[in-house]
Simulated assay, not measured.
Amino acid sequence: MDIDVLGTLAVREMGTSITPTAPKPRQVLALLALHADEVVPVGTLTEELWGSEPPRSARPTLQTYILQLRELITAALEQHGDDTRTAKDVLLTVPGGYLLKGGEGGHDVQEFERLAGMGYRAMDAEDFPEGARLLREALALWTGPALADVHTGPHLDTQIKRLEESRLCALDQRIEADLKLGRHRELLSELTVLLSRYSTHESLCGQYMLALYRSGRRGEALDAYQRLRSTLVRTLGLEPSPALAKLQRSILMARPEGVAGASGVRLA
């Protein structure tokens, strides 16, 4: 089974889609797919679909959604002439819940985590070209926001936030690697877009300041700091971190020896 959630939901059995079009069954499949090869309790599925006050018909309705998913799986198996398994072998009923078997197919989240982990280890070893390559490959698996076309409840919302944080960490480290490799000018347009979306993200701002400074745009680097400071004070009542303030002072003084900035990269 191939599972893609880093963008629109796509689940395929033997190359044939088993992704339903109806919103609720899609929601069930998304949660099962995110936890492939793990038991998802009935209570978790129920809360995901209906919140803390499910209707009396919640359990039989959930069973109907499971039946609909199994019908799609059956069609996929029959299309490919697989008579060694049934839908119940792929989507199992187990004590207390359901389990979707991933088998030997691909799962984009697992592949993202594998590549990102290798990228982090390369960064720790100061192999910045390899770190940049691996992290760029990991981030390329994202085709949009996670589960962009799925209605989400509390459990999927939590998982989406976790995935987005993982993506941001990988993105931060990939930009860090590119700065280490002297690609500051190439990063400017990307960082401009990112900061318009994550206006209070200090690490991205620090990287943007460094990229501007190294591109000979010292005044704009200082302006970026002031914009972030104004936003933090206005929206959160906070000052920038000491590390970012130190970077700002270093750029202000234009010290040629350089100091470590908020992103861990030196000015010179």
Rank of each mutant, 00 (worst) to 15 (best):
Asp127Cys: 09
Gly105Phe: 06
Gly153Asp: 06
Gly103Leu: 11
Pro145Tyr: 00
Ser166Met: 02
Arg214Asp: 13
Gly105Met: 01
Leu156Tyr: 12
Phe112Ile: 10
Val94Gln: 09
Gly117Ser: 11
Ser199Lys: 11
Asp149Val: 10
Thr200Pro: 05
Met209Glu: 05
Glu113Ala: 09
Lys101Trp: 00
Glu126Ile: 03
Leu181Gly: 05
Leu212Cys: 04
Ala138Met: 09
Gln207Glu: 03
Pro95Lys: 14
Asp108His: 12
Val94Ser: 08
Lys161Glu: 15
Tyr213Arg: 07
Lys101Asp: 08
Ser166Tyr: 02
Ser199Arg: 08
Leu115Lys: 11
Leu147Pro: 02
Val193Ala: 11
Leu141Asp: 12
Asp149Met: 10
Gly182Asp: 10
His184Trp: 14
Gly103Gln: 12
Gly106Tyr: 02
His201Thr: 00
Val109Arg: 15
Thr152Glu: 03
Tyr120Phe: 15
Leu194Ala: 10
Leu168Asn: 06
Leu115Pro: 02
Thr192Lys: 15
Arg114Trp: 03
Leu139Thr: 01
Gly117Cys: 02
Leu135Phe: 10
Gly117Arg: 12
Leu171Pro: 03
Gly117Tyr: 00
Gly106Leu: 04
Glu126Ala: 06
Arg114Pro: 04
Glu137Asn: 12
Leu163Val: 09
Glu104Ile: 09
Asp124Gln: 12
Glu165Phe: 07
Gln159Ala: 13
Tyr213Thr: 09
Ser196Trp: 05
Tyr98Asn: 05
Ala148Pro: 03
Asp149Arg: 07
Leu147Ser: 05
Leu134Asp: 02
Val193Asn: 11
Glu165Ala: 14
Gly119Cys: 06
Trp142His: 11
Pro129Trp: 04
Cys205His: 13
Tyr198Gly: 00
Ser215Ile: 03
Leu181Thr: 11
Leu156Ile: 06
Arg136Phe: 01
Arg167Ser: 01
Asp124Gly: 05
Arg121Ala: 12
Ala177Trp: 02
Val150Met: 02
Gly119Ser: 08
Ala148Ile: 07
Gly182Pro: 06
Ile160Phe: 00
Ala125Glu: 12
Arg136Glu: 10
Asp124Lys: 03
